[in-house]
Amino acid sequence: MVELAQNLIDGLGRGSIYALLALGVAVVFGVMHLLNFAHGELITVSGYAAFWALTNGWSWWIVVPLIVVVAVLTSLVIERVAFSRVRGASDFTLLLTSFGVHFVVSAIFLLYVSASVKNFPRPAWTTSSTWSLGPLQIETFDTVVIVVTMLTLLATNLLLQRTMFGLALRAAAADFDTARLMGVRSDTVIRGAFALSGLLAGIAGVFWLMRAGSTTPSAGIDPMLKGVLAALIGGLGSLRGAVLGGFALGLAEVLLRSWLPGSIAGLTEGFVFALIALLFIFRPQGFVAVAHAERV
């Protein structure tokens, strides 16, 4: 029982990061129908920024906002350089464009930094500090991740529900052409979606990098895959589904890892993927079905 509770908390902590990543993927998918395989690159670029700053003696207090800012800027630059040129293109083109962005970004780091792992110091409290709640030992890091994620999701919800920008974003996701007829600027709403997506990835990136303590040119693959898969199992196009999908993915990983015998614990990810494949056979539209109307 205690072990299960402990696992649930671990899973929530991990799932929080995935939820933020998935939400960013879903926001962009909503306005552009683009499944962004380059989403993880925001963390790669932020990771190198963090590496540079920390090895130059900056404190984590400054590096945290730096990571977020770099992620937002990178997201906007990628939109400007690549995605703005393929707006309205076929799914095939959009998917391969984002795949191409992923490769160009990682290749640039390969070219100008190196293929090797760059390590940087992690804040002490992320590794050792815990607090107890009855019989439970809860990591301070997990606590911070969960609290910050909840606050971020709350703020994002307020942004989407209460502001004109949020309203425009939701309208554009539902019917892009009609939103433009109402005066919603396509540039504003798409760039806004990329900025929001970058912001969410930046917050997720802070935790991701604090936990990893290193970066490589291909560091973005893992967060990208988690974000994209979580968005997909939540139901493509649904923001609520994306968050749900993120938490579900985090919990599934942690629970599987604790249940699997040690000899095959290394295959956890493989089992998670297999579970996802099964989910798609039985519920192909994901948790939250979104209607994709087709005019005949």
Partner: peptide, 14 residues
């Protein structure tokens, strides 16, 4: 082409 998931008020706001 009204936004079916948005409320009446939100449609007007847009």
């Amino acid at each position: 082409r009204i936004f079916v998931d948005l409320t009446v008020e939100e449609n007007l706001r847009i």
